[in-house]
Amino acid sequence: MSRVVRKFTTKVPTWKPHVTPLKMEEASEDQRAALRETPSNTKVSDYVLVLAHDPQALGARTPLFNGIMYDAGGLSRAERELGAVAASFVNRCIYCAAVHASRYNQITGEEETMQKVFFDGAQADLDPRARAILEFGVKLSQCPPEIGAEDIAALRAQGLDTQEILDLTLSTALFGWANRLMHTLGEPVA
């Protein structure tokens, strides 16, 4: 349980924090309220207990995160996950990539797409719509993120409407956020 995972995988590792997680018995009222936003059917993770040092941020972040990935309408669940994986690939967040690649595989029932993404990144040989989404997600995740009219046009050419482009942007940018927390405040171990 101490080997750091450095290669992309769909097998979800354990996240080992570099910052001391909050102890539940020491949580303030604000911290308890922020932790109640997380699903009650699962054990509170070390990741959430690290973020609980900043309860105001955590309290807004949790419903935003869930809404961007799960709210009805617009871009399909699988394609939102593809945006999340594109960001996690660029930012080399092995943990986030594993979680969201495995969700993509669960939703779509195939594993080939994610294998190609992990091997070839933005050059992965996917069907044209998935490839356009991946390329957009990779480009948006770079610094600086240089997205212009031609990048929007490339998505529209594959049939994405404005709502779907907005939803893809939110899920990709959200992982620009999550990766920067996951990949710096701790590391994946197996």
């Binding site: 910052v19 040092h53 900043d54 972040r61 995740s141 929007i152 942007t169 956020w177 999550a178």
Partner: peptide
Amino acid sequence: EGDIVRLAGLVAFVNYQLRVAVVLDAL
């Protein structure tokens, strides 16, 4: 320790926000 988390949260949020802004601008 708490300020490390606050700082990471600030950096992460701004990097989300600026990416959404870039696309809203292009759209």
